[in-house]
Simulated scan of single mutants.
Amino acid sequence: MKVLAVFFVVIAAAIATPVAQDAHKAVFVKDMPVRSNSITGRITNGYPAYEGKIPYIVFLLFGNGNGGAWLCGGSIIGNTWVMTAAHCTNGADSVTIHYGATWRNQPQYTHWVHHNDFVQHHEYDGVALNNDIALIRTPHVDFWSLVNKVELPRFDERDNCIDDHWAVLSGWGATSDSSGASDYLNCVDVQVASNHVCENYYGGGINGNHLCIATPENKGSCSGDSGGPLVLHDSNRQVGIVSFGSSAGCEANAPKGLTRVTAYLDWIRDNTGISY
Rank of each mutant, 00 (worst) to 15 (best):
G240H: 03
H121A: 14
V95S: 01
S38R: 11
S221R: 02
S194G: 13
V197I: 13
I43L: 07
A181G: 14
I11E: 06
M83L: 15
A20D: 01
K219Y: 06
L185S: 07
A101M: 09
R137M: 14
M83V: 15
V192A: 09
G273S: 04
Q120G: 03
A193K: 11
H87L: 09
H196S: 14
N37S: 13
D189N: 14
G126T: 10
Y202V: 01
I39E: 07
G65I: 03
D22E: 06
H210F: 03
C212M: 12
A167W: 00
S170A: 15
V150C: 10
E123W: 04
T262Q: 12
Q191T: 14
A69Q: 14
A13F: 01
I206P: 00
V113R: 00
N209C: 07
H98S: 14
G180C: 07
N218H: 05
G228V: 09
T102A: 15
G52E: 04
C161P: 02
N105D: 11
L61R: 06
D156A: 10
K25N: 09
H210V: 05
S176N: 10
R158I: 15
W172R: 08
N218V: 11
W70M: 05
W112Y: 10
S75W: 03
G249P: 02
T84F: 05
D163L: 08
G63N: 10
T84E: 07
I77R: 03
C212G: 06
P139H: 14
T44Y: 04
V231A: 13
I11N: 06
G100F: 02
R137C: 11
D266Y: 05
F28E: 00
M32N: 01
G41C: 06
A92R: 03
F143K: 15
D117S: 13
A12D: 10
N200C: 05
S176M: 04
Y184E: 15
I274H: 08
E151W: 05
A174S: 12
L135Q: 11
S182T: 14
G91E: 10
W70Q: 03
I206R: 01
T110I: 12
N130I: 10
D266G: 09
A5G: 15
V242I: 15
Q238H: 09
T262S: 15
A174G: 07
P139D: 15
A26Y: 00
Q106K: 04
I76R: 04
H98I: 11
N116P: 02
A5P: 02
A26D: 05
G204P: 02
S38H: 10
W166F: 13
V3S: 07
V127P: 01
V261S: 01
Y276I: 11
Y264M: 15
I206A: 05
K2M: 10
T110R: 05
E199T: 12
E251A: 08
V113H: 00
Q108R: 04
A92I: 00
A193L: 12
A69R: 11
V27C: 11
I15S: 05
S179F: 00
L152D: 02
A167M: 05
H122D: 12
D156I: 12
L230C: 07
W172H: 05
Y124D: 04
H121N: 14
W81M: 15
S182C: 08
K2P: 05
Y124W: 11
V19A: 04
Y56S: 10
W144V: 12
T89W: 00
F155W: 09
